[in-house]
Design a protein around this nucleic acid. Sequence first.
DNA 1: GAAGCAGTTGAATCAAGCG
DNA 2: TCGCTTGATTCAACTGCTT
Lengths: 376, 376
Amino acid sequence: MAAVLALADLKQQVRPTTWLNSIIKGDCVAALEALPDKSVDAIFADPPYNLQLGGTLHRPDQSLVDAVDNEWDQFASFEAYDAFTRAWLLACRRVLKPNGTIWVIGSYHNIFRVGAMMQDLNFWLLNDIVWRKTNPMPNFKGRRFQNAHETMIWASKDAKAKSYTFNYEALKASNDDVQMRSDWLFPICSGGERLKGDDGKKVHPTQKPESLLARVIMASTKPGDVILDPFFGTGTTGAVAKRLGRNFVGIEREQDYIDAAAERIATVEPLGKAELVVMTGKKAEPRVAFNTLVESGLVRPGQVLTDARGRYSAIIRADGTLTANGEAGSIHRLGAKVQGLDACNGWTFWHFNDGTSLKPIDDLRAIIRNDLAKIG
Amino acid sequence: MAAVLALADLKQQVRPTTWLNSIIKGDCVAALEALPDKSVDAIFADPPYNLQLGGTLHRPDQSLVDAVDNEWDQFASFEAYDAFTRAWLLACRRVLKPNGTIWVIGSYHNIFRVGAMMQDLNFWLLNDIVWRKTNPMPNFKGRRFQNAHETMIWASKDAKAKSYTFNYEALKASNDDVQMRSDWLFPICSGGERLKGDDGKKVHPTQKPESLLARVIMASTKPGDVILDPFFGTGTTGAVAKRLGRNFVGIEREQDYIDAAAERIATVEPLGKAELVVMTGKKAEPRVAFNTLVESGLVRPGQVLTDARGRYSAIIRADGTLTANGEAGSIHRLGAKVQGLDACNGWTFWHFNDGTSLKPIDDLRAIIRNDLAKIG
DNA sequence: GAAGCAGTTGAATCAAGCG
DNA sequence: TCGCTTGATTCAACTGCTT
């Protein structure tokens, strides 16, 4: 796990899977050229933010604020930053599978340029996600609002890509059974999770919290997927991917970051397969025809179904269709017909009387599915 | 108040202040050309979002989602949208005073293009602000995260403009004595605030809540300032500006929107000067989390609070402080003052009349907390 | 009157699979 | 790739009616 590859070595590799779960040392764009077309399922990118800091900043007690002033965050102009952004986004685009998705995180310094470029390159924006920080850095000068969030853009390869992975049901179940919103609340990376050098100083100035990556990965990938991080840093993406049973590829220029990341990832224990099963909704469940309910005896021909309030009724026929008012059709078609609508989910519309109350026939479908699950 | 000017009339005006507190009918860029250089203190712009909707969308119950499909939101391409954005931003730039600031609101469909263009035109981004919606529209198909926020960009005219208005102390005092963050929580505009036509349908598809505008205006302008809204719509900016003792200029193309806005603004009662004093510096020393009640409309500026037996009374000011007997301060400080005590819990001391009895404002705080708890 | 239920609605780039 | 069929899918707030 987490082998480190020199770019020259990688280009000579014959078996393409050699780069799986490794960190490629080198410039982001050059390294990406060594990866095959359409080879990764998801990308998480935390590019340089192009912070435009003037001078130093002191706290009210005169201590110095440790700002991001690394060489890799210096760009001569917006034009230079745009050219850089375009290059790595295009390189990412090539290696992304047709139904893959890409996440990019940034702040107001760079995210607008990145988002506009993504649209220009035909990426299709699915959401912008706000990471609300529980413990953001204060604004010391009192001249602006406290900068308490960062923004992530989630996009598919183009507008036509409809089959991207989105584990909707699992997210909803993990969120008190309501849809996951576009604003997420997480602490910044600190404490034991924050990698520190022998000198006690943080190894990387912008290490992201694992909780954030965990939600990204659980939301938009499946176990076994390949996740690329073209700005790997100290390897949060790799560590979380490994823990969650995904594969990763990291690209990083700085040897210090690579060393820290490799060491970190080596200590990660992957979760077992049982814990990684992604909860799926009805979409992914086996399709059950209404006729199966008739065949299994859960309902019988001649039985009357009604809507939840008993305003509409229909009779079950032996072939698994319904009939009412001289019309006949599937549970969906007839449900729509009696209501005068174009469409209707018959499973939730039609109810049966179980002796005490009206219950949706979807409950009976659940019984069938439960039996099917036992068989495997 | 809220005179409506034809563009041809305006160009013949001699006295420049004629356009104050009026709605200019016409195209945004053309109308802006009629305003003098460096004549407005702040700009709030809610431009078309350039939504690119496919077919129609039905709810699970088959009802139709009323989408934004107005002609004014149709652009042929990103290039066309960029050209439009560049034109109105440049025109706004000219009329903005050197130390003025501009707010632009948008969603992921357009905000990245707008933000990048603002940087290209040399605006200096101060913050991006996230408006988190307490009650956003769900995602019906379950293919994305629920789109639960919009983004505002706040910028000064250029990096050198240091003397822009930012009422830091008042914001902090109104926010439990901690800095105001970049993520704000407000409900969408609905209920009685939402303008409806004779047919009962909403007049404008994207009317913004007054609470949002109130925080924008209280944060970044002073009483008497001139606030320009180049996409005036139904005049939320004008209504809030008038209520808060600011001047406005609105630009709008559609006569229906102008009519609704003019009528709406005419009914607005400006607050008194005493309630509008903006707290500055540390001498006022408020210690309250009271302003959220003002912004949310649970209490209103000018409203009278009393103690449980009605012996003492005070008036709520727009910045979330109270005033009584020529004294002013936080709910706690003023509660102590009127009783001649050193300290007082304003939340339990001050009461409001709910129509039948006096109830502590702590009950209102509980409502806010309840809302917050739902979201996490 | 209060409480509760049913219906409505909000800036939406909102399906998947098969022939 | 297009067109057709099948069938999957909602949260919070407000309004108005019934109990």
